Amino acid sequence: MSIYTKTGDKGTTGLFDGGRVAKYSERVETYGTFDECNAQISFAEKFCKVPRNKDLLKKIQNKLFLVGGEIATEDPTKFYAASQVISEMDTTELESIIDEYTAMLPEIHSFILPGVTLAGAQLHVARTVCRRAERGLVRFSNEAKVRPELLRYANRLSDFLYILARSEDNYQVDDDEVDQIVKQYNDAIGNGEE
């Protein structure tokens, strides 16, 4: 089966519920940006060292399919009948993880550079794409009905990606410091400096 259909050759694309819209429409721009965010999250996940973070990001990727699917549907009842949707519980779960990680990480009192490690930097890229997607969703909500829970989830997701970036940076910096101490100890033993 071919991956191309030729149906978009005239500048329109098909939606989940069968309708067609211009590829430059606000709807397509919005779900396309969430798709871009999802790809960035996938990329970031490959660099993560914390196993839980990897699992959380994979779960988020599946949730973003729900976000994109809902936005890609002009008649939301058709999407609701065929799929799960982002719920208040999904947003609450993000908040719970954000609160848990915030309590574990060192306090900060200023802006931070986006990413000390490769994982942290990539998560910050995903965070900024998520913010752009959220701005698009807010703009799109001026022309079409968007469930408030979708807006809340998008807003919380960028905060979640921020805290995971900090988590990865903190973990890897701590790990590097331990490696440095072990190396210094081994060097000292090798030089007879016990």
Rank of each mutant, 00 (worst) to 15 (best):
G11E: 00
A103T: 13
E36T: 14
Q172I: 14
L118N: 06
V85D: 12
G69M: 01
A44R: 00
G14N: 08
R139A: 13
L64T: 10
L56K: 00
K183S: 12
Y185D: 10
A119N: 00
L105V: 10
G32D: 03
A72F: 04
N191G: 15
Y153R: 00
A81N: 13
Y162F: 15
D99H: 09
F43P: 12
A72S: 12
S110R: 12
T12Y: 02
K63T: 10
Y4K: 03
S25T: 04
A126Q: 02
G192V: 05
K183A: 12
D90F: 04
V21E: 01
D17V: 07
L66I: 05
Q172M: 13
A82K: 11
Y185E: 11
S42L: 06
G68I: 01
Q184A: 12
E36W: 02
T30A: 02
Q61L: 07
R27S: 00
D176M: 13
A39M: 10
I189R: 08
T33N: 05
G11Y: 01
S83F: 06
P114H: 07
A188N: 07
T77R: 15
D179R: 09
A121T: 02
A144Q: 09
K59P: 08
I97H: 02
S25L: 02
D35G: 05
V178S: 04
K63P: 04
I112D: 15
K10P: 05
H109S: 08
P76T: 12
R27W: 00
D169Y: 02
G11R: 02
A126H: 05
D159A: 07
R135H: 10
F34T: 02
H109D: 15
K183R: 13
A82T: 10
L137Y: 02
Y153P: 04
I98S: 13
G18S: 01
E193L: 13
E194L: 13
Q61H: 04
F160K: 02
Y185R: 06
V67I: 14
V125W: 03
N38Q: 13
S25K: 01
S110K: 14
N62M: 07
K58W: 08
T5L: 04
